[in-house]
Structures are given as C-alpha cells and as structure tokens.
C-alpha cells in the first residue's frame, strides 16, 4: 500500500468516525471533492495527516463544526441558470395556478439564494400567498444565514442581471434593502418560508409536496445515495408533482427514471406520472 492508498484509507476511516460520532453520513459522497475539502482543512489546521485530524475530530466538537462547514457548503447564487427560472414561469406556474394551496420543498437550500429567487417568482406570479415553502439543509450554520437573508452586495450586479434574464417583472431592488456591504432580503419574502434541518442522506419524508427543488446537490452523491434520494422525492411528491434538478443532474440514470416524465428536458424539470402504483 503506497502513501496515496494509505491516505484514502485514512479518509474512509475519518468519514466513518464522523458518522459514528456525529451522525452525519458522508460515506456515500463522491470521493474526489470530499478529499479536496479534507486536505484543505488539513493544510489550514497545519496537521501532519488525516489520522491526526481523526484524533481532533473525536475529541474536539468545535473542530467538527469547522469540518462540517467544509464538507457541506455548496456555492449558490440568486437565479442561478436564469433560463431555469424562465422555464418555471412558462411551463410550471400555469399548472400550479390550478391548485388551491401549494407546498414546495427546497432540499439542500444552502445559504438560501435560490429559495428567495423562487419566492420572488411566486410573488410576481401571484401564487406566493397560498404557498408554503420548506427550505431544508443539513447544516445549521448555513440555515441560519438563509433565514437571515443577508447577502454580500458585491454579488448584486450579477443577481440583478440573472433576475432580468429569468423574466423578472419588477426592479430587483424592490426585493432588498442595501446596508453598506450587504443587502437584506425583504421581510415579505420570508413570510411563507420555513427553514429547517433535514439530511437527505439519513432523514425521511416529512410531507406531500407539489414541487421539489434540489439543484446541484445530487452531483455530490454516489449512485446509491442518489437512488435513495430519488426514492425519497418520489414518495414526497403528490401525483403530477414537479421535480427540479440542477442543469447537470438527471433522473434518467437512476432506478426511478420511469416514474418521472420530462416537462422541460434541458432545464431538468420533471413531473411525477399519475398512478405511480409502486409507491
């Protein structure tokens, strides 16, 4: 066994320790990204090897907090992929409009940028007041940020351009107030959003949804964990419920492909077929 193989073994043991001690399960995550993040933390903490990190992890909960942030932060932006939001307005909203009450689950919402984007779309389409949005993430730290709805002002130019390309109908500045180097999202956008803790790797169904958004989360999972999550989504969606994935994700290579029909193929918007007898 050479040094790289030994390091991979240490990594495997570290993820096992994280699971056994703290209950967070990264064992079925794609390895290359996890390894990069762990090696970064190793350098930042000036530790000699992953085994030394293992020791720290087991005896220092503060260290685990830092590691959890390293392992769970996925970068997002407002109206990421503007064409996706345009497709939501054109192809999904007309069907949602028929419903008396809407439940939306944003799984793996990270710091909340896309949750607020969806809230804005729903508001402009006149659906917000009859919608309940559940925004979940496994990490309490990012959830707190999401709940606060405070974002760096340096991104606003990009977000405004995205908003306009996504079919925005107002002036984007109507949705936030600016303070020095940051903006605070308007309170009215938060009214129907419930931010809560949920781990896709270990937790189960918590409601029947009309639409599930889970964008750029599944790319971090291996096929087994992807299938677990697709099953969870299938069980959480009502008939004709929508599933929205990231632009490089697909339900087509999963064991649940047959359950979902394409709505807008290139934007990875799917709809659960009626009469899904198997669940």
């Amino acid at each position: 066994m050479d040094d790289i193989e030994t390091q991979n073994l240490e990594l495997q043991l570290l993820l096992q320790a994280v699971y056994l001690k703290y209950g967070y399960d990264f064992r079925n995550y794609a390895k290359a990204s996890i390894k990069r993040r762990i090696l970064h933390r190793l350098t930042a903490e000036k530790l000699p090897n992953i085994s030394a990190m293992q020791h720290l992890l087991l005896y220092d909960e503060g260290f685990f907090g830092r590691l959890l942030l390293d392992l769970s932060i996925n970068v997002t932006e407002m109206f990421r992929d503007p064409n996706f939001y345009l497709a939501i307005r054109q192809h999904v909203i007309p069907q949602l409009r028929e419903l008396p009450y809407l439940k939306i689950w944003h799984a793996g919402c990270s710091t909340g940028e896309e949750v607020y984007s969806m809230a804005i779309v729903l508001k402009e389409e006149g659906l917000y007041d009859r919608t309940q949005i559940y925004a979940t993430d496994m990490n309490e730290v990012v959830l707190r940020q999401a709940r606060e709805g405070i974002f760096a002002i340096s991104h606003l130019k990009q977000y405004t351009a995205n908003y306009q390309k996504a079919g925005g109908q107002e002036s984007f500045s109507n949705y936030y107030s600016a303070h020095y180097d940051h903006v605070v999202m308007d309170k009215s956008l938060k009214k129907r959003i419930l931010f809560s803790d949920h781990n896709l790797a270990t937790d189960g169904v918590f409601g029947e949804m009309n639409l599930i958004m889970c964008r750029n989360v599944l790319i971090y999972f291996d096929r087994d964990l992807q299938n677990r999550v697709f099953n969870l989504f299938r069980e959480s969606l009502c008939d004709n419920g929508f599933l929205c994935l990231g632009s490089k994700e697909s339900v087509r290579l999963s064991t649940h492909s047959g359950v979902f029909a394409d709505v807008v193929k290139e934007e990875k918007i799917y709809q659960k077929r009626l009469h899904d007898l198997s669940c």
């Binding site: 794609a30 990204s33 996925n74």
Partner: peptide, 10 residues
C-alpha cells in the same frame, strides 16, 4: 479514482 467523472459547484 475509479476513473469516472464528477462535477461540483464548489
């Protein structure tokens, strides 16, 4: 390391 590709938004 199993010679497949991954994409991330890191």
């Amino acid at each position: 390391e199993d010679f497949t590709l991954s994409l991330t938004v890191d």
